[in-house]
Design a protein around this nucleic acid. Structure first.
Lengths: 207, 207
DNA sequence: TAGATTGTTAATCGATTAACAATC
DNA sequence: TAGATTGTTAATCGATTAACAATC
């Protein structure tokens, strides 16, 4: 089953909304409930659920518990991947943004920092120097890395991560990384986003 | 002139590549140079430049200096917008990721933190408690905010930012914000991205 | 000239959404 | 039944890219 990437992203969002429904013991949702929660159209929700082969009823809508199960199965969320944070800013961020929740379909298991002095930071995750990357990544079978550091170090650390067995990189450095084609990279370029917002929020630009 | 959002993002990337060309005093680029640098096809580059009405020559390609000027003009980069960071993790990130460079088309002028104890952090930008948001945002005419904090605080702080005059929010909290329709929000949801990578890097999933 | 490159149209691709039959 | 909702096809929309004439 080959899901569009946009659908995969929305399934992750639906799932979190559904988990809060489950928490409040609401047994059913309609497509317009999910749609409102993540700001899309109800037909989009139904199309997405169609793609993972999930069906509801015209009277009650969708079963919350069963839909969570179906999303978990479709996105293989039983097979939780291990994540390493690389770079100081990722750590505060991960803690502050609640990336460590055990409801997420990934598990942050290690941090790697560049500078000797920063290793004293007290954290929710074990903190190592970057020279430990090969050992820890291999031992723990970490597959995903979040990369945040000054751009001039990014390619070098990226190479080390890949040699150590990392399969996917969430790249927060505003740098284009050179990687083998079997490695997945998602670039989050804050400079680009801020410049785009700068342009779009200019009162002279009508949208 | 109404530019597609994808083109706006690429123009920001081209611009940074061009700045490095300028730094090394390379006077001209071909479309395939820019294409390789940001990993798109040359025809994409030519199409983008066509949209901002910039032309090159078949012999030399494009003038680096003139193209930077044209992008700056098209994206109104002379009118630099002021940015506030809200939440601890944004600060380390901004410093580490070099968001403070004066070559960018935005200017980080303030940080706001939630917790009393964190205000002692030594930073590149002035640091205030969140209760100062209305005063500082108005006085300094800050238009863009980067929001990173535990999700349960996000909507409240978002409301305060908007009341204070913020026009655009880069939202790093994994929360859907309710905002008036004239406010621009870009969501960067790390949970979604990590779950998507978790799925896509699963060896059972063929792409 | 031959070869490389630009500029631009038309075709294609991928995703969203309108429309509507089927269901409860 | 009437009304709300689901499931699905076909139309639409937006962005990328193939194709190719024009230029140097």
């Amino acid at each position: 089953m080959n899901l569009p990437e946009t659908t995969i992203e929305r399934l992750s969002l639906y799932r979190r909304v559904l988990l809060s429904y489950k928490y409040f013991e609401k047994p059913y949702v309609f497509s317009h409930d999910l749609a409102r929660a993540i700001k899309v159209k109800p037909v989009q929700v139904r199309k997405d659920l169609m793609l993972i082969g999930f069906t509801g009823s015209t009277s009650n809508g969708y079963s919350v518990v069963k839909l969570i199960e179906q999303i978990d199965k479709s996105l293989k969320f039983r097979n939780v991947q291990k994540v390493a944070l690389v770079g100081l800013s990722t750590i505060g961020g991960a803690t502050e943004l609640y990336l460590g929740s055990d409801e997420n379909a990934f598990d942050i298991v290690a941090c790697f920092l560049m500078h000797e002095e920063t290793r004293s930071v007290k954290m929710d995750y074990p903190v190592y120097g970057i020279e430990k990357i090969p050992e820890i990544v291999k031992d723990q079978e970490i597959t995903i890395a979040v990369l945040a550091m000054p751009p001039e170090f990014a390619q070098n650390i990226c190479d080390i991560l890949i040699m150590s067995g990392i399969k996917a990189i969430l790249n927060l450095c505003s740098t284009i990384l050179e990687v083998p084609e079997n490695i997945l990279v998602k670039d989050i370029d804050f400079i680009t986003y801020l410049e785009k917002m700068s342009f779009l929020s200019n009162p002279n630009v009508k949208r």
